[in-house]
Amino acid sequence: AREMGVIAAMRDGFGFIKCVDRDVRMFFHFSEILDGNQLHIADEVEFTVVPDMLSAQRNHAIRIKKLPKGTV
């Protein structure tokens, strides 16, 4: 199932999404941004959540798609 959120932080090559449906900041890597979009803080996005290979306690966001403002 796809989830929605807002870009909360951007770093060098990765960032975090503030999720709508869960009280966490979800890690993502820039390589998972679809359509070659440039994302910025406060952009609204949808994404798929998958378990982190390195840590069973953590998840991360993949297949991130920018949404029109006002969607979330």
Rank of each mutant, 00 (worst) to 15 (best):
H29D: 14
Q57W: 10
F27G: 06
V72I: 14
L34A: 12
H60W: 03
I17T: 02
G36C: 07
D12I: 07
I41V: 13
V6A: 11
E44I: 04
V49T: 09
E46S: 09
V45S: 02
F47A: 01
K69T: 15
G13N: 13
F47I: 01
R58Y: 11
Q38S: 12
R11K: 14
I33H: 02
I62W: 03
M26G: 05
K18C: 06
H29E: 15
D12H: 06
F27T: 10
H60V: 13
K66V: 06
F30G: 03
F27V: 12
H40V: 09
V49C: 10
D35Y: 09
L54K: 15
R11G: 13
R11H: 15
A61L: 03
H60E: 09
S31P: 07
G5A: 00
I62Q: 04
D35R: 05
I17S: 01
P68T: 08
N59Y: 12
K66P: 03
I7V: 14
N37S: 13
R22G: 06
E46C: 02
I41K: 01
D52P: 06
F27M: 14
F27K: 14
D12T: 08
I64H: 03
Q57C: 09
P68I: 06
I7E: 00
A8L: 11
K18L: 05
R63A: 11
D35L: 03
L54A: 14
A61E: 06
H40F: 09
T71A: 07
F47V: 00
L67E: 03
H29Q: 06
T48M: 15
N37I: 15
F28S: 06
G70W: 04
G15Y: 05
P68M: 06
G36L: 05
D23G: 11
D21Y: 07
V6I: 14
N37W: 05
L39A: 00
Q57F: 10
H29S: 14
P68G: 05
D12A: 08
N59S: 13
P68A: 09
R58G: 13
Q57A: 12
I64E: 01
E3P: 04
E32L: 00
D23L: 05
V24L: 13
E3K: 08
A56H: 10
V50P: 05
K18M: 07
V20M: 15
K69Y: 04
E32N: 13
Q57R: 11
R58H: 10
L67K: 01
A1F: 12
N59D: 13
D52I: 04
L34W: 05
I64P: 01
H60N: 08
V49G: 04
Q57M: 07
V24W: 02
E44P: 04
A56F: 04
I64R: 01
L67V: 09
A56G: 13
V49W: 02
R11A: 15
D12Y: 07
R25M: 15
I62D: 00
N37F: 07
A1R: 14
R25K: 14
K66I: 02
I62N: 02
Q38E: 14
H60L: 09
H60G: 03
F16A: 04
F30E: 12
R22E: 07
M26A: 09
L54V: 12
R25Y: 10
A1D: 10
I41E: 12
A1H: 02
F14E: 08
A8I: 14
G15W: 01
F28L: 06
V72G: 08
V72F: 03
E44A: 04
K65C: 05
A1M: 11
D35Q: 06
I17L: 03
I64T: 03
G70M: 03
H60P: 02
V50D: 06
V50S: 12
A56P: 13
L54F: 12
D21F: 01
N37H: 15
Q38L: 07
L39W: 00
L34V: 12
E44C: 05
M4N: 13
H40P: 00
A56I: 11
I62G: 02
P68K: 06
I33K: 03
R11W: 08
Q38I: 15
F30D: 08
I64V: 11
L67F: 01
V49K: 06
N37K: 15
V72A: 10
I33M: 06
K66H: 01
M26N: 07
L39F: 06
T71Y: 04
C19F: 07
P51E: 13
R25H: 14
I64W: 00
L54E: 14
L67R: 03
I62K: 10
E46P: 04
L67W: 02
D52F: 06
A1I: 05
K65E: 05
H29W: 12
A8C: 13
R58A: 13
K69M: 10
A56Q: 10
D23W: 01
I33V: 12
Q57G: 13
N37E: 12
G70A: 05
E44G: 01
I41T: 10
E46H: 02
R22W: 04
Q57L: 07
T48C: 10
G36Q: 12
H40T: 12
H40W: 06
T48S: 14
I33R: 01
I62A: 11
T71H: 04
F27A: 08
E32G: 05
T48Q: 06
L39R: 00
I62E: 11
A61P: 02
V20A: 11
H40L: 09
I64L: 07
K69A: 13
E32I: 13
A42N: 13
G15E: 00
